[in-house]
C-alpha cells in the first residue's frame, strides 16, 4: 500500500533496474523515496550520491541531482557537495562493502564531523556485484565466495561504529520492516547532522544461496525472525541476543553540525574585520 506516488522521483527511462530477482534494494530505495515524498523536499535541492556496488546503481535510477562516484568514496564526494551547497539535502546510498570496507575511513570521519549527510547503507552482508565475497558485515561462520567454509572475521556493528564516531543519528531496520523503514529515513533526513541508517537487505542470489536461504522469502523470514525492536532489546539478556539484532532508532542526540559551525565561523571572522 504505497502511500504516495514515488514515480515522479524515478528516471523511468532507466528502468528496468539491474537488480536480481528477490533483491531487497528496491525496497530500500522505495523507502528513501517515500521519506523524501513525505518531507516534500524540492527535487532540485536534493543530491543523491553513490559509490560502487549493487546499491550504488540507485543513483542512476532517481531523478535528483545525482553523482555516481568511485568505490568507497561516496561520503567524501558528498562532503564536498554539502560544503559547497549547505542548503541542499545530501543523501548517500551505499553498500556495506562500499561504506565500511574500502570507504570505512570516510564513514568515521564524516560521522566525527557530524556533517549533515544522510547515509543509507544497503547492508546485504556480501559483495553482491562481484559475486559474493565476504564483507565487513559478513557474520562469523557465514559462507561467502571467499570463505567457503565459513567466515573467520568479526563483523562490524555499523550503527555502533557510526555512533562511536560521532554521528548524531543512527538507526537500523530491514527490508521486511517496510513500514518502519521510511519513517526512520525520514527522521534521518530531518536530523541536522550526520545520520546513519543501516538497512538489512536481502541478497538471495549470492548471500542466500550460500547460506541456506536461497529464496527471497527465506531471507525476509530471517529478517522477521531475528530483528528485535529497541524496546524489547533493552530487556533481553546477552544470551537471548545471540544471533539476533536490534532495529529501530538506536541513537538520536542532536549536536552542532559542521556546515553550521563553518558558516558561523565565517560570519564571526567577517564581523571582526
Amino acid at each position: 500500500m504505497p502511500e504516495e506516488d514515488i514515480s515522479k522521483y524515478l528516471r523511468l527511462d532507466k528502468l528496468p533496474h539491474i537488480w536480481c530477482p528477490g533483491c531487497g534494494n528496491g525496497i530500500v530505495l522505495h523507502a528513501v523515496l517515500r521519506a523524501i515524498g513525505k518531507l516534500q523536499l524540492d527535487q532540485d535541492k536534493v543530491a543523491v550520491v553513490s559509490g560502487i556496488g549493487c546499491s550504488s546503481r540507485s543513483a542512476g535510477y532517481v531523478d535528483f541531482n545525482t553523482l555516481h562516484t568511485t568505490h568507497g568514496r561516496a561520503i567524501a564526494f558528498a562532503t564536498g557537495i554539502k560544503l559547497a551547497r549547505p542548503d541542499m539535502t545530501v543523501i548517500v546510498l551505499t553498500g556495506d562493502g562500499d561504506c565500511a570496507a574500502i570507504g570505512g575511513n570516510h564513514l568515521i570521519h564524516a560521522a566525527r564531523r557530524n556533517i549533515d549527510l544522510t547515509v543509507v547503507v544497503f547492508n546485504n552482508s556480501i559483495y553482491g556485484m562481484t559475486g559474493g565475497q565476504s564483507s565487513p558485515t559478513t557474520q562469523p561462520d557465514d559462507i561467502a565466495a571467499t570463505a567457503p567454509y565459513g567466515n573467520l572475521e568479526n563483523a562490524f556493528d555499523l550503527c555502533e561504529l557510526a555512533r562511536a564516531s560521532g554521528a548524531s543519528y543512527a538507526a537500523r531496520s530491514t527490508t521486511f520492516h517496510a513500514t518502519q523503514l521510511p519513517l526512520l529515513v525520514e527522521k534521518g533526513i530531518q536530523n541536522k547532522g550526520f545520520s546513519f541508517l543501516d538497512v538489512i537487505t536481502a541478497c538471495p542470489v549470492y548471500f542466500g544461496r550460500m547460506n541456506k536461504m536461497p529464496e527471497a522469502v527465506d531471507m525476509l523470514k530471517y529478517q522477521r525472525d531475528n530483528a528485535r525492536n529497541i524496546k524489547q532489546w533493552s530487556t533481553m539478556t546477552d544470551e537471548e541476543k545471540g544471533g539476533k539484532f536490534v532495529i529501530g532508532e538506536l541513537h538520536n542526540k542532536p549536536a552542532p553540525e559542521y556546515t553550521d559551525l563553518y558558516a558561523a565561523l565565517r560570519a564571526r571572522l567577517k564581523e571582526n574585520k
Binding site: H71, G97, A101, I102, Y127, M129, T130, G131, Q133
Partner: peptide, 9 residues
C-alpha cells in the same frame, strides 16, 4: 586481494 570486476574470479 580485494574484489573488482572483471578480475575478481
Amino acid at each position: 586481494a580485494y574484489p573488482i570486476t572483471p578480475a575478481t574470479e
